[in-house]
Amino acid sequence: MSAWRDVGRDLRRAPVLNMLTVTTIAFSLFAFGLFGLVAVNIRAALLKVEERVEIRAFATEGTDVAPIAAAARQVQGYPEVMSATVVTEQQALARARQELGEFSDVFEEGFLPASIDVRLKEGHRDPASVKAVATRMHGFDFVDDVRFGEEWITQLYRLRNIAFVAGVALGLSFAGVAVIIIGATIRMAIMARAREISIMRLVGATDGYIKRPFLLEGMLKGLLGGMLAIAMTYFAMKSIEHYLHFETVFFERRFVILGVLAGALLGVVGSSLSVGRHLRQAI
């Protein structure tokens, strides 16, 4: 209770400074949030592209449908596979005519081979998994050729990995900035109470007791900063949608909660580093 009382007293002592602190934390988390929003939207776009990853195993001309259908059932049993569909020569022709309407009269009966079209489950659309399934499908006697756009998938994944690494690096940088800002503001609070802290130590207060109100204060500021940052990110997204006519995705609720908790955690870490340093300067 006394730790909360100390927090209350500190907050009342310098309300403007504390408001500025929360706002600064909010802005640094807002930058983090904006980047997160971009990352989430890139990820959503990539997922849509990924859904189009497909393996096509073409049958040798004149192969009966029965062995192709049997093979498709077998492929359907692979753990990575979401669907394996048999496309007969006629269906392939119809599809080509539909997709390439203006050239429809060019295609003749028997021009396109039958195939098994395979779609993979989410999480198995990386180049290695796609190639592994394609290689296994090559093993069927009737298969003449397997195509899956190897280069395209590799490029897609490279893009995804770059986005992930950039996201982690920038995320950590912004988190670092938030920790430094919170640490610096808590340091001001520590300086304001330096005399009190030195007396506490002299009369036998433990480090834990001395640290507690500062950690609570950091947590509270981080929590408020986190909530403010989420609100600012939400309004930024709505503005982008409104003025730039983008269809955007916002964070899922669990990520919103996680974001606010991350703000609180950054607050605790920043305070802990700051007050820990202060206490370490004396035995």
């Binding site: 009190e196 130590r201 036998g204 207060a205 433990t206 035995i283």
Partner: peptide
């Protein structure tokens, strides 16, 4: 340890020239 020092100081009284009052 730091905790041992804190507990020891509870059994000591310390006064200074500059009083060190709040």
């Amino acid at each position: 340890s730091r905790n041992d020092v804190a507990k020891l100081r509870r059994k000591l009284g310390i006064v200074f020239q500059d009083f060190r009052l709040l």
